[in-house]
């Protein structure tokens, strides 16, 4: 095991100042302006952010640049949520905020002050898995596992979205209540890329949780 406290201290300082490179320039300009050592750079004050993450409320002071993804990983130390592209293109960072799945890399933590966030750790843990987590294990819905937390958070929300009657591009009659089908699941899961190509087993796992038999196990 890495000495995690040190690792987090280093990365936390980096993130708060907006990355190592800018941290260096920021401290240079503070010195040049002869700003008092204790005062933070006035141009970028920290902002207090309270999030209810997996049921527990916590407040941290963040550089406003901190994305929700970096806040969860670096400040809440919940590293289950993964950074793939950091640009909304892969879905690895998917979490559920106020009941809706979003890409945590394309939103600022401060925009969610006071809101409730569920990450993969909050869905379930070893010994007490969420049915979707258990189904991914049962159906081998992964290979390297890097996309998996995002896939599972997305899949849980997809089944809720179908139940809530939200239409998709695969819905033939958008005025009608959508029904579960593999075509619906494929379309709705298209924002989660799996570089290992575990899609067939991912769809089996989701169908299983939805109560639909599917694939070889049908």
């Amino acid at each position: 095991m890495m000495p995690t406290s040190t690792a987090f201290d280093v990365s936390r300082r980096g993130v708060l100042a907006g990355g190592v490179a800018t941290a260096a320039t920021a401290s240079v300009s503070i010195a040049a302006d002869a700003a008092p050592q204790s005062a933070p750079a006035s141009a970028e004050p920290r902002v207090p952010v309270t999030l209810k993450v997996n049921g527990k409320s916590n407040r941290v002071d963040l550089d406003p640049r901190t994305t929700l993804l970096d806040a969860l990983r670096e400040h809440w130390k919940l590293t289950g949520t993964k950074k793939g592209c950091d640009h909304g293109q892969c879905g690895a960072c998917t979490v559920i905020v106020e009941g809706r799945r979003i890409n945590s890399c394309l939103t600022l933590a401060v925009m969610h002050d006071g809101e409730a966030v569920t990450t993969i750790e909050g869905l379930g843990e070893p010994g007490d898995l969420h049915p979707m987590q258990a189904a991914f294990v049962e159906h081998d819905g992964y290979q390297c596992g890097y996309c998996t937390p995002g896939q599972i958070c997305s899949a849980v929300a997809v089944l809720d979205e179908i139940k809530a009657g939200i239409p998709s591009h695969a819905t033939a009659d958008v005025a009608a209540q959508p029904a579960f089908s593999i075509e619906e699941v494929k379309e709705r899961m298209s924002g989660n890329i799996c570089r290992c190509g575990a899609y067939a087993n991912i769809f089996d796992a989701i169908a299983d949780v939805a109560g639909e038999a599917r694939g070889a196990r049908a």
Binding site: G88, G91, R101, I102, S154, V174, R188, G191
Partner: peptide, 10 residues
């Protein structure tokens, strides 16, 4: 519904 992804549209 033809644009972006479910997460982005949310």
């Amino acid at each position: 519904v033809s644009g972006a992804s479910g997460q982005l549209r949310n």
